[in-house]
C-alpha cells in the first residue's frame, strides 16, 4: 500500500469512505495495535477483544462516509469507538439486563458510534505517541482516588450510579469527583509542556 503509506489519517479515512480497501488496510496496519490493546484491556476475554477489533474495522468500513472528519479526530474517534464496543461487550457479560438491548443499527448509532465534539484538535497517532510521557506524568500526579474513579469509568465501564454504589458515596459526589479528576488531569497535562 505504498500510495497510502504517508498520507494523513484524515485523507486515509476519506479514501475508505470511497471504499478503497487498500486504504482500510493501511488504517488497520497503523491502528490495530492500539485498537487491540484497548480492546484487550477492557473486553471480558481475548475472544471478545478480537471480536471488538473485527467490529471496529467493519464499522469504519461501513460508516466512514457518514462522518465529517474535517470536524473530527480520527484517533479520538477510533479509540472511542473501540472503547464503546469493548465496554458494551463487557457490560453484556456482566449484567443480564444489558443483554436485553438488541445490537441493531439504532443501538450502534446511539451507543457505539462516537459522538465527538466538532471543536476538537485533529491529532494523529504520531502526535499521541510524542505526548505519551506527558499523559503518563499527568496521570501520576493524580491522587489514588482520582485515578481509581477514572479507571472505574473509562476501563471498567461503570456509570456514575454504579460507581456511587460501589464506593458507597453519594451520586453528586461521584459527579464532582469525575469532573475534578478529568480537569486535574487536563491541568497536569497542560503543565507538562
Amino acid at each position: 500500500m505504498p500510495e497510502y503509506k504517508d498520507i494523513p489519517d484524515i485523507e486515509l479515512i476519506a479514501e475508505i469512505a470511497r471504499f478503497k480497501s487498500r486504504a482500510l488496510e493501511e488504517l488497520y496496519d497503523r491502528y490495530s495495535p492500539i485498537v487491540y490493546t484497548v480492546a484487550k484491556k477492557i473486553a471480558p476475554d481475548d475472544k471478545a477483544a478480537e471480536e471488538v477489533v473485527v467490529d471496529v474495522f467493519s464499522l469504519v468500513w461501513q460508516k466512514a462516509g457518514e462522518i465529517d472528519f474535517t470536524k473530527n479526530c480520527v484517533y479520538t474517534w477510533l479509540i472511542t469507538l473501540t472503547r464503546n464496543r469493548a465496554i458494551d461487550l463487557l457490560k453484556r457479560s456482566r449484567s443480564p439486563e444489558a443483554t436485553l438491548d438488541y445490537y441493531d443499527a439504532e443501538y450502534i448509532d446511539t451507543f457505539i458510534m462516537p459522538h465527538i465534539s466538532h471543536e476538537i484538535d485533529n491529532y494523529d497517532l504520531k502526535h499521541i505517541e510524542k505526548n505519551k510521557k506527558r499523559i503518563e506524568n499527568a496521570l501520576d500526579k493524580l491522587t489514588d482516588a482520582q485515578k481509581y474513579v477514572i479507571h472505574l469509568a473509562y476501563y471498567e465501564g461503570y456509570n456514575i450510579n454504579e460507581i456511587s454504589d460501589k464506593l458507597g458515596i453519594p451520586i453528586e459526589t461521584v459527579r464532582t469527583k469525575v469532573y475534578t479528576a478529568l480537569n486535574t488531569l487536563n491541568e497536569n497535562f497542560e503543565a507538562e509542556l
Binding site: 490495530s32 465534539s117 466538532h118 476538537i120 484538535d121 503518563e136 496521570l139 488531569l185
Partner: peptide, 23 residues
C-alpha cells in the same frame, strides 16, 4: 464544545500509556 473536545482527546489518550500488543 471546546472543553468537551479537549476532555474527549484527553480520555482517548489514556490508552496510549498501555503497553501495545500486536494482534
Amino acid at each position: 464544545y471546546k472543553e468537551l473536545g479537549k476532555l474527549q482527546t484527553l480520555t482517548s489518550m489514556l490508552p496510549s500509556i498501555l503497553e501495545l500488543e500486536q494482534p
